[in-house]
Design a protein around this nucleic acid. Structure first.
Lengths: 206, 206
DNA sequence: CTATCCTTCAAACGTTCGTTTGATTCAGAG
DNA sequence: CTCTGAATCAAACGAACGTTTGAAGGATAG
């Protein structure tokens, strides 16, 4: 009889996500994680091989779905001949915000992502680039088409800054309680509108 | 004969700043710090008492000056009767950007600050709030006057988001090499203009 | 039933951590 | 010169870390 309806693997992933978000990758120990997940200490190395592999698995669980949604949304935008920069940005932002507002740990994951972004860790950057870089490159191509007059270098670091600011901002949005009386849909649309305007202005700056 | 023109204390602070920026507070060990600073391991506890105190000292060395400059710039803005929201934002952003562009470790400090911001560490937040909160509250009062129609709660979380996005962005600006042929002054003014427009738009959003 | 395979368990591994200790060095005051 | 006190040093402390081990558990197939 386990202590939860979820499997050992899933309980480890959930506890690790929350603790990595709170204390960082170096700051959260496997003993904290396994205690919170109510599993044996050795279970992490049995199921994931190492702490580094666990970190990657925590990312993978959420980012696989996020990237698939972003890819599909961008494809839909590309099928319309009169799509704007804002439409492409919406395809980028909306899936991420839905993830950030997900009730089962979405906010914790977003905070973890923001920390990873701020860490500039080489190993983690390579992992993210190798596994999810192709979708980001698709977006970069589309953005480049919507933004002639920007050199490739200029576009790339602007995208990096915009993505960073969005990630950081969304990590905090998960913590903000929405105003009473507003539906979750309204809250999401209000937030997307806000982020989208900021991102578009940043990308279009002279 | 020491290995540098700087004192043991200063060498520790400089090495700690760089290593905290690169590996985080938990990830950088005192052995790494003291080796990089070319001092004995026990020197940290002798001069600062503990690792936590060292972290605070690294912040204090830069933030004392930053807060004084921000306070002075805001006072100058307040002395003009027709000052705009953009003027107040300039008083907030310009000293920080000058710090970020400082050649002696300014970029490293900004990256460290961005990490601290993303960490949401309770102890660190209390330290920053206790020591530098009063200047931020001065800014909040001015911003509130320039932004009627915003509730106090709305203003506070918008300021938090704006400050976070700015901090994160400036942490990366320190890494970006400016285009050849542009002076440092021109680069700084271009960047400030960019950040200022974004922050003003974010604060003024409906 | 036994045999097999996946999973869980308590215990221990060697390493690294922050911190403390007690001796040593050394410049400046009397 | 001696004395004093701050600074530096090598060495060690106990605790916590990620990881490994070998035995025990427990479901399923033959």
């Amino acid at each position: 009889m386990s202590a939860s309806q979820f499997s050992t693997k899933q309980r480890i992933l959930g506890a690790a996500e929350a603790l990595f978000a709170q204390h960082g990758f170096a700051g959260a120990s496997l003993r904290q994680v396994t205690t919170a997940a109510n599993v044996n200490l050795a279970a992490v190395n049995y199921h994931f091989g190492s702490k580094d592999n666990l970190i990657e698995a925590v990312f993978r669980r959420r980012l696989d779905a996020l990237n698939a949604r972003r890819h599909a949304a961008l494809a839909k935008v590309e099928s319309k001949p009169d799509a704007t920069l804002e439409d492409a940005l919406d395809a980028f932002i909306r899936p991420a915000l839905e993830l950030a507002l997900d009730r089962r740990g979405g906010a914790a994951f977003m905070r973890m992502l923001a920390r990873a972004y701020a860490e500039h860790d080489e190993r983690l950057r390579r992992f993210l680039s190798d596994n999810y870089g192709h979708v980001l490159r698709e977006f970069a191509v589309v953005f480049h088409r919507k933004l002639p007059g920007l050199t490739k270098d200029e576009l790339y670091w602007r995208l990096d800054l915009v993505a960073g600011a969005l990630t950081y901002t969304m990590a905090d949005f998960g913590l903000i309680k929405r105003r009473a009386g507003t539906s979750e849909t309204a809250h999401r649309e209000y937030t997307i509108e806000h982020l989208l305007r900021f991102a578009a202005a940043g990308l279009r700056a002279p």
